[in-house]
Design a protein around this nucleic acid. Sequence first.
DNA 1: TCATTCGCAGACTTATCGTATCTATAATAT
DNA 2: ATATTATAGATACGATAAGTCTGCGAATGA
Lengths: 138, 138
Amino acid sequence: MKYSQATDYALHAMLYLVAEAPDKPVSVQLLAEKLGVSQTYLSKMLTKLVKAGLIHSVSGANGGYKLKRNQDDISFLDVIQAIEGNTSLFECSFHHDSACLIQQVVADAEQQMMHTLKSKKIADLVAHIPKQPHDRLT
Amino acid sequence: MKYSQATDYALHAMLYLVAEAPDKPVSVQLLAEKLGVSQTYLSKMLTKLVKAGLIHSVSGANGGYKLKRNQDDISFLDVIQAIEGNTSLFECSFHHDSACLIQQVVADAEQQMMHTLKSKKIADLVAHIPKQPHDRLT
DNA sequence: TCATTCGCAGACTTATCGTATCTATAATAT
DNA sequence: ATATTATAGATACGATAAGTCTGCGAATGA
């Protein structure tokens, strides 16, 4: 049981965008090059991030992806759920007459993790990183 | 991203064993019947629980599975890790010079969930359940 | 207006893993 | 001995992850 590699890509891509926070949109090509992954696959993740409303896309020449304005407060949970979906970690497959006690326990524990991931922002990682060498991020 | 159904089976099987806590071992046949799943598949989960040291198996006629003595304090985490393994929820696939900051955040959040799942015991669910109608558990 | 650059969507392939079954073997009670 | 039971291994199937390829549409710049 593991988060997909796609989530890994998405988180690192977001970190790059937040740390860089450029005026000009960043193309998939550049982003994929920085991360060392394929463009076509990475673009799928980025499209999901767009649909989740985390970033903004610009078509055409000199296009690419930009952060949505005033949104340095994108949380880890936002990115993870954008990629993984927001389904529960555990779902009881049995037919109970009332709610499944086991599921309640696991769901409660998961809720705590989600709370932490929600309070932690991507931008929090940028704070104590010097502005110049962005390569350290990838 | 979800816990496997096998974990679901294992948790419910453990709950049955803890709630019942019989002198005689419980066979896979009975257990599978109670849960409404296949014997052969369920036996794989139980074997994992044995290897994890959570329960005890008795071969031969009238054999089956029993709780290990004085172990009502089996936690949810014990069962989950016995089935899912103890690998981390998230592992960064990039080559950083130092540790991955992203991974640290996610690992920290996961750690909180694990802490909760460790403190919560299967037996906790049995406390406020009447002894007779065990079928309510499945 | 035209070509280039870009994101977007869908079809498609491949690999991996979860789910499940079957069979044979070893252990134990009667 | 024989029946009963757990255990291990091989195998099969399906779903999901991982990744590629292609064509379409939107925007830019010449």
